[in-house]
């Protein structure tokens, strides 16, 4: 891939002011995120790092507009977040490609919703597919791709909307180690071209250290930011970074933070759409 272009992002500022989020219904509702205040600069790559169930995905869901905060304000470029929008693209841990659409039409979906003619949206989709290295797979169905390829298509689909903010919920968590490393490289490469703000949720310290400009460490439920860590590593980065002494020192520091706060029992994973199992079938017939 080419060397990253110097890019100065102007859009994609995120501002949270004492944001609290409750998930679940009725007596099962609980505070997943409590009083989070933070600012993310345009073009910044931020990792939310924390134990499973700490509310980092919940925070991401609120940024995407799928969950409403119970208190506080949440703004992107000065405007309150009210519902989902292509400007805030969301990538889930497992792909959400439409099984009934070919890869090219999955990627072009956002443009279809905007009413672009077929030829124009296919041309744009092809360009992005090439960028994520999937030129030859436009006519496949998602089920015909490997897990890593599916996530690449998912990223291409979100990028086509030219988002100001890219929200990623452990997007490589379900991939094998080697594929994950390749995907991290690919993401950094794509990010350096687009210059969007990235908020990347992970519980993998190595991943956060490798990717981020800045790591926000969260406490177990209810999630709070317990540490705001700026990483000194130069870009572009490569796999050798993880063998340096600085990297090891920061990793120890993060481990200590996570261990210090670890709950007695691991909590169930939350999703950007709320508590697990809120969509249980309630069919009477």
């Amino acid at each position: 891939m080419n060397a990253p272009l110097p890019l100065v992002a102007t859009a994609g500022r995120i501002a949270l002011d004492r944001v609290s989020i409750r998930v679940g219904h009725g007596p099962d509702a609980f505070a997943a995120v409590e009083e989070v205040t933070l600012d993310i600069a345009p073009g910044e790559f931020v990792c939310l790092l924390g134990p499973s169930g700490c509310g980092k995905s919940t925070l991401l869901g609120a940024l995407a507009g799928h969950l409403a905060p119970s208190a506080g304000t949440l703004r992107v470029d000065g405007a309150d977040v009210a519902g989902p929008s292509p400007e805030r693209g969301l990538v889930f841990q497992h792909h959400t490609l439409f099984p009934w659409r070919r890869v090219i039409d999955n990627v072009a979906f956002g443009l279809k919703m905007r009413g672009e003619p077929r030829a124009a949206r296919h041309a744009a989709a092809r360009e992005l597919l090439a960028l994520v290295g999937l030129d030859g797979f436009a006519q496949r169905y998602p089920s015909q791709l490997s897990g890593g390829m599916q996530q690449r298509v998912e990223i291409a689909r979100v990028l086509l909307g030219q988002p100001r903010v890219l929200l990623m919920d452990e997007p490589f968590g379900a991939l094998d180690a080697l594929t994950r490393l390749k995907m991290q490289q690919l993401l950094l490469d794509v990010w350096s071209r687009f210059g969007t703000t990235v908020v990347f949720v992970t519980h993998d310290i190595d991943e956060a250290l490798f990717l981020a400009d800045r790591i926000l460490v969260m406490s177990p439920r209810p999630g709070r930011i317990v540490e705001d860590l700026r990483l000194p590593f130069a870009r572009p980065r490569d796999a050798a970074l993880s063998t340096t002494a600085d990297f090891a020192a920061l990793k120890r520091h993060c481990l200590a933070l996570l261990h210090h706060d670890a709950p007695a029992q691991p909590l169930p994973r939350l999703t950007p759409l709320g508590a697990p199992d809120v969509h249980a079938l309630q069919f009477a017939i």
């Binding site: 995407a64 959400t96 909307g161």
Partner: peptide
């Protein structure tokens, strides 16, 4: 009815995020 209820809520969320 079962088919509609079985549609993955994440697909609906993604479609809405895409506009």
């Amino acid at each position: 009815v079962h088919g509609v209820e079985g549609v993955d809520a994440r697909l609906v969320a993604s479609a809405r995020s895409l506009g």
